[in-house]
Design a protein around this nucleic acid. Structure first.
Length: 767
DNA sequence: GAGCACTGC
C-alpha cells in the first residue's frame, strides 16, 4: 500500500528525499511538537492565495435580479448557456423563470407541453422538484413533478418536470423529437455524464428539426466557453454563487505520501485553527477507514490539550445509516471551558458533488481520486488512482466555504496545480466502454456514429469495439443496422450482454431464473461468501486487526449488523462463521451466478423477511433493490411477449439451461484453464485469476465471468462453470477458428468441432 | 488466494 501511494504521488515531481527524513520532521509522532511552529509553516507561506475574487463577483447580479434579462435572451434565442457556481440558486429559479417566459401550449392549443430540467442524480431530481413545488405552492406531482427510474411522480397536469439525464435519454428513445417538451434545461452540464454527452449531440439535431424547442445549458464556470462554441455561439449569461471566500494553501514541497500528509494536516488544523469541521478527500474505502483509525489514534495520543474529535468515514457503499453520521454535530468539549470538539469527515469524491455537508470550514485535498478508465484493446474498464483536475480541485475547495469563510489545504505545490493538473476531468464518454451507448444511439436513429456531433468524440477504437460486440451479439447486422433483436435489447436498462442473455432465456426455458440472475447482478450484487474473505482481517497489516472485511459488511451483512460488528472485540471469528454459514446455505459449486440465484430464491421463499435476512447474513436492502429491478425487467419482457418460463427444478437440465442461457449473452467473456494452471481469456489471451471470492469447489476448464477487475492482479469475478461443447453450439460465429489466435483453447475447440462433426455424421447414418 | 471512485437506465 505504502509503495503504491508513493508511486501515485510521483505523478507530481517528487523530491528525491528519503521518506524517513520527511516522516521524522513532519511525521505522525506529533506529541511534544511545537504546535505553533507547525501552523506557521503554512500561515506564513508567501504563495498562499485567495482563490475567489470577491470584487469580480459584485459585478454580476444575483440570479433573481437578472430575470428580465434572462427572459429577453431566452425569447430571442433557441439555445442559451447559463453559468453559475454552486449556491447561485439557478437550479430552482431558472426553471420557474422559463415557466413565466414561454407559452407551453402547442400551436393548435390542444395540449400543454412541459419544461424538462435534467439532473445527473436521482436524489437531486427529487429534492429540487420538491423544493420548487413548495416555492410555487403546488402539490408535488401535480404542476411540478419528477421522474426517475422506479418512480414517476408526475401527471397530466405537470408542466415542470425534473428528471435524471438518463431518464430523458430513455424518453428520447420512444419520442425522438422530444415533442412533449417545449424547453429542455440541462443542469450540471459541466459534470459531463455519459447521458448528458449523448443528449448534447442528440439535442443539437433535434433543435434543427424543431425550431419551437428551446435549450438551456446550465454549468459551472470553467467549461462555459466550450459549451458556447459547441452550441454555435449561443449567448452566455452569468450568475454569481453565494459562497464565502476560501483561502487556498499549497505545500512548499511535493508530498511523498499523501495519506500521511493528510493525517498530519488534520492534526495540525485541530491543534491550531479556530473551531470548524474538517473534510478530507481520499480515494477509497480502505484508505478512508485506515485514515480514520490513524486520526483517532493521533488525536487520542495528544490527551486533553486538544478538543475531542468525531472522525466519520464517508463513501457510497457505506450503509445509509452510517452515512447519516456526517450530519451529526461536532462533539462538545470534554469539560466545560475546555478546547472545543471537531467533526472530521474523511470522504471519497462523493462529498465533492453528491453530498453536501454544512459546517465544513477546512478542506484537505491531496489531489487524487479513483477514476474509471477503459482500455478498448483488452475491453476492460478499471479504476485507477489519478491526479484530479483543476475543476475538481476548485470544487473541493468550494466545500469549505458553504457556511462561512474557509480554508483549503492542497497537499501539492502551486506549481503542480498550474502545470500538472489538466483543466477538466476527462468526460465519461472518453473513459467508458460504449457498447450500451452505441446501442442507444442506434435506437435513437443515429446511423453514422463517426459523424455524430460529439462534444468530445470517443476514440475510434472504442466505437469499433462497441460495434463489434453488438454485431457478435446479433444486435447489429453486418452493415451496422439495428436488428429486431437489437431493438428489443436496447429497451432493457442493462449492458448488452445481459440484455441478450435475458432476451434469449425464454428459448432456453429458464427466463424466470435468468431474470433473477440479471436483477442480482444489475443491483450490484457479487456475493463473497468464502471464509477467506472474512479471514482477511487476520492477514491485514498490523493495526488493521479489528477491521472487518468490507465485503462482509456490505455484501452479506445487513445494516444493523454493521454497527454491531464494528463494536465486537474480535469480530473476525464471528464474521468467518457468518460467512461459512452463508456459504453452506447458498453456495452453488457450479458458480457464483447460481449462488446469487439461490440467495434470491431463499429470499423470496422466506417472504422477503427482514429478520430472516438478518439471521442469514443477507443484505436486505440489496435484495430489495434487486427485486425492484427484476419487476422492471419483467414488465419489459412482457411488453415484447417474451415468455416467462422455467425448467422443472427436478430436471437435470434445470441448471444446465440457465448456464447455457448465460453463455448465450456472455460468450465473449470466457476464460480457459491452461495446462500451466492459469486462466487465459478467450481470444484476448490475457492471463487472469479467479477472484478468491468465488464459490467454486474446483477449477473448471471453461468459465464465463461477469467482471474483469484490474487490481493487484487480473481477476475475473462472479464466475460460472460452462462446457466447451456449448461454446461451439451456442456461439460458433465467435468461436470461428479461422479467426482465432493460436493457443491451447483453440486446439481444444478444434477437437470439439471435430467431435461435433462426428456426432452429426453418426446421427445422420443412424437415420 | 484479495480489496470495488461515483452515477444512471
Amino acid at each position: 500500500m505504502g509503495t503504491e501511494r508513493k508511486r501515485k504521488v510521483s505523478l507530481f515531481d517528487v523530491v528525491d528525499e528519503p521518506s524517513a527524513k520527511i516522516a521524522k520532521s513532519n511525521g505522525l509522532g506529533l506529541t511534544g511538537m511545537n504546535a505553533n511552529s507547525s501552523i506557521n509553516k503554512w500561515n506564513g507561506r508567501p504563495y498562499s492565495q485567495r482563490y475567489y475574487d470577491i470584487l469580480e463577483k459584485r459585478k454580476t447580479l444575483p440570479v433573481w435580479q437578472q430575470k428580465e434579462e434572462f427572459l429577453q435572451v431566452l425569447r430571442a434565442n433557441q439555445t442559451l448557456v447559463l453559468v453559475g457556481e454552486t449556491g447561485s440558486g439557478k437550479t430552482t429559479q431558472i426553471p420557474q423563470f422559463v415557466l413565466d417566459a414561454v407559452d407551453i401550449e402547442t400551436p393548435d392549443k390542444r395540449r400543454k407541453m412541459m419544461i424538462a430540467c435534467t439532473q445527473p442524480r436521482r436524489v437531486a431530481a427529487m429534492s429540487v422538484s420538491r423544493r420548487v413545488a413548495e416555492e410555487m405552492d403546488v402539490t408535488i406531482g401535480e404542476e411540478v413533478g419528477y421522474s426517475i427510474r422506479f418512480e414517476d411522480c408526475s401527471s397530466a397536469r405537470t408542466v415542470l418536470k425534473y428528471l435524471t439525464d438518463g431518464m430523458l435519454l430513455r424518453e428520447a428513445m420512444t419520442d425522438p423529437l422530444l415533442e412533449r417538451y417545449k424547453v429542455i434545461i440541462l443542469d450540471e452540464a459541466h459534470e459531463r455524464t455519459l447521458a448528458t454527452d449523448v443528449l448534447f449531440g442528440l439535442l443539437k439535431e433535434v433543435l434543427r428539426n424543431r425550431p419551437d424547442l428551446k435549450l438551456v445549458v446550465m454549468s459551472a464556470t470553467l467549461e462555459a466557453e466550450k459549451f458556447q462554441g459547441y452550441f454555435n455561439g449561443a449567448p452566455l449569461m452569468k450568475v454569481p454563487g453565494r459562497l464565502h471566500p476560501v483561502e487556498i494553501f499549497y505545500t512548499q514541497e511535493p508530498e511523498r505520501d499523501y495519506l500521511e500528509a493528510a493525517i498530519r494536516t488534520v492534526v495540525q488544523i485541530h491543534m491550531c485553527e479556530p473551531p470548524g469541521d474538517i473534510l478530507v478527500f481520499l480515494t477509497g474505502e480502505e484508505e478512508i477507514e485506515d485514515a480514520c483509525r490513524k486520526i483517532t489514534k493521533e488525536v487520542g495520543n495528544m490527551g486533553d490539550q486538544v478538543g475531542p474529535v468525531k472522525v466519520v468515514p464517508l463513501y457510497s457503499t457505506l450503509p445509509p445509516a452510517m452515512q447519516q453520521k456526517i450530519f451529526e454535530p461536532a462533539p462538545p468539549p470534554v469539560k466545560e471551558g475546555g478546547p472545543p470538539g471537531r467533526k472530521i469527515v474523511v470522504s471519497t469524491n462523493i462529498a465533492e458533488t453528491s453530498l453536501t455537508i454544512d459546517g465544513i470550514v477546512y478542506v484537505i485535498d491531496p489531489g487524487f481520486s479513483k477514476q474509471k478508465v477503459y482500455n478498448p484493446r483488452v475491453r476492460v474498464e478499471s479504476l485507477l488512482v489519478s491526479p484530479i483536475s483543476k475543476a475538481s480541485a476548485h470544487q473541493r475547495s468550494g466545500r469549505a466555504g458553504r457556511t462561512q469563510p474557509g480554508k483549503c489545504f492542497r497537499l501539492y505545490t502551486e506549481k503542480s496545480f498550474n502545470n500538472d493538473l489538466q483543466p477538466q476531468t476527462y468526460p465519461e464518454i472518453l473513459r467508458s466502454n460504449l457498447a450500451n451507448t452505441v446501442l442507444i444511439l442506434k435506437k435513437l436513429g443515429i446511423d453514422d456514429l463517426v459523424h455524430f456531433d460529439f462534444m468530445d468524440p470517443p476514440a475510434p477504437e472504442t466505437l469499433m469495439r462497441a460495434l463489434e460486440v453488438l454485431n457478435y451479439l446479433g444486435a447489429l447486422d453486418d452493415e451496422g443496422n439495428l436488428t429486431k433483436l437489437g431493438e428489443i435489447m436496447s429497451e432493457f436498462p442493462l449492458d448488452p450482454q445481459m440484455s441478450k442473455m435475458l432476451v434469449v432465456s425464454s428459448e432456453f426455458n429458464c427466463s424466470n431464473e435468468i431474470l433473477s440472475v440479471a436483477a442480482m447482478l444489475s443491483a450490484g450484487m457479487c456475493l463473497r461468501l468464502s471464509s477467506a474473505t472474512v479471514l482477511s482481517g487476520f492477514h491485514a497489516p498490523v493495526g488493521m486487526h479489528h477491521r472487518i472485511s468490507k465485503q462482509v459488511l456490505m455484501q452479506i451483512v445487513s445494516v444493523s449488523q454493521y454497527s454491531l460488528m464494528k463494536q465486537m472485540v474480535s469480530p473476525c471469528l464471528e464474521a468467518q462463521k457468518a460467512a461459512d454459514e452463508a456459504k453452506a446455505r447458498f453456495g452453488h459449486i457450479d458458480g457464483d451466478h447460481l449462488t446469487l440465484l439461490n440467495v434470491y430464491h431463499a429470499y423470496k421463499q422466506n417472504n422477503e423477511d427482514q429478520s430472516w435476512c438478518y439471521e442469514n447474513f443477507i443484505n436486505h436492502r440489496a435484495l430489495k433493490a434487486a427485486d425492484n429491478v427484476r419487476q422492471q425487467l419483467v414488465r419489459i419482457m412482457s411488453r415484447f411477449n417474451l415468455k416467462l418460463c422455467s425448467t422443472d427444478f427436478n430436471s437435470r437440465d434445470y441448471y444446465v439451461n440457465i448456464r447455457k442461457a448465460m453463455l448465450a449473452g456472455y460468450f465473449m467473456q470466457v476464460a480457459h484453464l491452461e495446462r500451466t494452471g492459469h486462466y487465459l481469456t478467450v481470444k484476448d489471451n490475457q492471463v487472469v485469476h479467479l477472484h478468491p471470492s468465488n464459490c467454486l469447489d474446483h477449477k473448471p476448464e471453461w468459465v464465463i465471468y461477469n467482471e474483469y477487475v484490474l487490481t493487484s492482479r487480473n481477476f475475473i469475478r462472479t464466475v460460472t462453470d460452462i462446457r466447451g461443447e456449448w461454446l461451439v453450439d451456442i456461439a460458433p460465429h465467435y468461436y470461428d477458428l479461422e479467426n482465432f489466435p493460436q493457443c491451447e483453447a483453440k486446439r481444444v475447440l478444434e477437437k470439439l468441432y471435430r467431435k461435433k462433426e462426428k456426432d452429426r455424421e453418426e446421427s445422420r447414418n443412424r437415420r
